[in-house]
Amino acid sequence: MDYFIELFFSGLSRGAIYALIALGYTMVYGIIGLINFAHGEIYMIGAFTSFTVATILTILGLPLLAIIVLTGIAAVVWSASYGYTIEKIAYKPLRHAPRLSALISAIGMSMFLQNYVLLAQTSDFLPFPTLIPDFAFMEPIAHIVGSTDLVILITTTVSMIFLMVLIKYTRIGKAMRATAQDRTMAMLVGINVNRVISATFVIGSSMAAIGGLLIASHIGQINFYIGFLAGIKAFTAAVLGGIGSIPGAVLGSVVLGLTESFATGYVSSDYEDVFAFSLLVLILIFKPSGLLGKADTQKV
């Protein structure tokens, strides 16, 4: 039973991280109908920025709490800037081009960013400093639920609530929903669509940065290639939940995280990634609209 609970919580925290990345996919898809293939790379850049900042701050000898806060801020700021810039360079000129052009451009961007980090930093796995200490009050259940898992779950929940409030109650959130529904109409009623799209990329990238920071300190090592796999898996989660739907992305991520965790725990860890990819293929074949998505009808 302990093993089951352990797997459950590790799957839950895995799903929480996927959710942070999947939100970026789903929001961008909802607004401009593009699979932002470079999103995984933004997450990777978030992890690298936090690695750099956290190490410098550790050398300077700051208290742990200050390190965590400053690292988080740095990761969010830089990832959001990358998200903003990528949209301006690779997607904005293609807004009226066919869907496939934008997708190819996104793939190119992803390759570019991966190799940019590879060349500027290193191709080796880098050991990430432990930021989250083992809490004393977690001691009795530490063998089932790790402290990092707890932090991941809390951070993700807070981020989700923040996002929900942002989208439901603020002006920009309203503008986003309007743009997602009908871009032309939104433009007609005076919404600056370009700004809304930029905001979407910034918010999505910030979420991915938080995910990058959490996963890096959870797994303890980073590499230029982590974005690719995480990106594909988060995309799987977004599609599973119904792409374009925010609650769907969260639900899909949790389902994917649990599936992976149980599959690796009870079946075999060799095929961990195969499970995720097979799940993706199966959903797209049998229910492309996902769990919470609505099937879109094709207009002629």
């Binding site: 190819i104 190119g108 961007m109 992803s110 390759m111 991966q114 190799n115």
Partner: peptide, 11 residues
């Protein structure tokens, strides 16, 4: 790196 840039620029 160049391949990535080529894909973006060509598009």
């Amino acid at each position: 790196l160049a391949f990535g840039a080529i894909l973006v620029c060509m598009m």
